[in-house]
Design a protein around this nucleic acid. Sequence first.
DNA 1: TTAGGGTTAG
Length: 805
Amino acid sequence: MGRPSGATERHKRERTKSRGVRRDMPPAPWPTPRTVRQAAELHAHLATSGRLLHPPSAHHLLNSLVNCLPPSDPLHLRYALHLFDRMPASTFLFDTALRACFRAGASSGDPDLPFLLFRRMRRAGVRPDGFTFHFLFKCSSSFRPRALLCTMLHAACLRTMLPSAAPFAANSLIHMYAELGLACDVRRAFDEIPVKDAVSWTMLISGLAKMGMLSDARLLLAQAPVRDVISWTSLIAAYSRADRAKEAVDCFKSMLSEGIAPDEVTVIGVLSACSQLKDLELGGSLHLLVKEKGMLMSENLVVALIDMYAKCGDFGHAREVFDAVGRGRRPQSWNAIIDGYCKHGHVDVARSLFDQMEVRDIITFNSMITGYIHSGQLREALLLFMNMRRHDLRVDNFTVVSLLSACASLGALPQGRALHACIELRLVETDIYIGTALLDMYMKCGRVNEATIVFQRMGKRDVHAWTAMIAGLAFNGMGKAGLEYFYQMRCDGFQPNPVSYIAVLTACSHSCLLNEGRLYFDEMRILYNIHPQIEHYGCMIDLLGRSGLLDEAVDLVKTMPMQPNSVIWASILSACRVHKRIDLAQCAAEHLLKIEPDEDAVYVQLYNIYIDSRKWEDASKIRMLMEERQVKKTAGYSSVTVAGQVHKFVVSDKSHPRILEIIAMLEKISQRLKSAGYSPITSQITVDVDEEEKEQTLLAHSEKLAIAFGLISLAPNLPVHIIKNLRVCEDCHSAIKLISRLWNREIIVRDRRKRGQLCACVTESITAVLLSVQSSRLDDAEMPNERDPFRRRLVMAAAVMKPPS
DNA sequence: TTAGGGTTAG
């Protein structure tokens, strides 16, 4: 150890003297404690022999004790500081006490402890040295960094010594400013160092990488006189964190070509990139490298390996690594494999592992909940939310994003709005993901204005937020506005990704912007080297179909480099009905039924096409085929939420308690529609009845019943929001647009296919869970003082849903 | 007595 030899000799002499041993005997070596217990024994020995106040003994004891302290142990830190308080003040002892604070980390319980020690040091007249500032800067980086305090420490350091006198402190200063995210100060701290060593460069590069300034970090790495494994690793990891996996791998290759050997931390960063790229080949070769080089199999490396194998779908190897860890595996390893199973649709396997876990954390729950939501098992997801509370886990940003995603997929606007209110009331700190999930929820619930307000209020936007906005405008039929946003997004310097182009092409197809669609479909390849995936082809085929260019659409299906899926053929089939192309409809339906033989919507669509074309025999053949194959037509229903309660209607429904008022309103609707010149589209009704009866049948469609009930029961300033489990028919579509104009009322109808079925009871469950979790927060709401009309409306929305106390 | 890089959930 680095104890001064003179001090050692003095210690030996003192000890010999105290034991009454002859002075000429060779002194026994001073034992260096290796455990806290041994340190305590030395403490007892020094205390009984009265040497605790003897500086060399005190230094040796405290220093050894700090070396033995298990990291993040508040009890042992208290012991060390208790000892320190009873020892003579010296620079070394203060430095050692600061070192103890740093080792204990945040678990010291008091983030101000290092600064209080520094103040005590100055008041006691003990002069700080390079070590003092080094440990102070390290503590500042680790515990809740605060800019003002850090600047004051920096100033105190400069008043005491020159940067050249304390190279370690000068380098730690760069790290401290990087942790604060102060790029200019990082650079200045670096520039102030008179003679920069390799670590100074590494600190600067890793600091910039950590702050996300990847281009600057990459440039400096090239300029640095020396590049070591740590500067390369920091850049690789930063690229991985920023979802720039390809650049992370390129960086790794450059590092290897410079002859720098990776270590286990480098491997973790590259494995993370492999997970994103699903590059099992590189990931597997890294695993081999770890084995060949005998690298330390740290817990983090285990997690990274399991995550890589699981994300790539290689569950054999993932389980191999997972099982090798045995019972001592950390929740992170469980989380990685559970998430992998969820992402590959094996939610049941994930749940079985989830049930085997002894200690689950918030990530375990969030992964499982997201898995359930993505697989459409919303009830299971909601049950887990309730379970979270039993485990004393509060919802966090990830949970809220999942909940918003569930609301969006259900079209559950009141619940989504209540969640928004909870976010505004600071249930969680809002971030770019929350903002994007919120605007997506509003868009999927048809509330374009609210989505736009959320987007405008987002402090920071990224390509995902812009894409969500463009996609939302697109599927709400505002394609031109979507394209304007796309233009603005590029002006703001955001590079579109493949999903952005799906949104753009959706905007074109939903608004029949044929020329623009053709342009963007070509442009994505030329400008951004984005090769069209099946989703891009799907949008383009849909656009051609809607534009009546069905032959061109079929040509594109034939020439595209992948097998067409059901979405593609469903687009063609849908366009065939509009453009009366029976020949193509039969072909599209055949392809569709090969892929989805049980999908009732295909039979119904083809049946309707035959009816439209008065091909009664073909239509009845389809009916018979359905019976033969036992395909059941899904019963259609529409729902509307009034005062937090979901009201569900089926066709010709007479079960509602206010049915008489609803019928009266329907009659009023019928009269006003006729007065406005509207003729019901009765051609789709095949039953052999007179025209008036056909009109009555159309009037009794579930969505019209729901609208009538909404109009009589909702306040005139509230929009009527209808959710339908099937597609809205042509007559309802036209009639609703006119009703909206005649009543000067916003009517939003969210229809959907059978997939991801709406379930009113699940919607109610969301309300129950949300309210039980967040009711305490809502109590804090000061509605009368809320001046911002948008926030006020939100808070009121949440308050309306508040459960009775 | 002193330095830097790391994993899992949206």
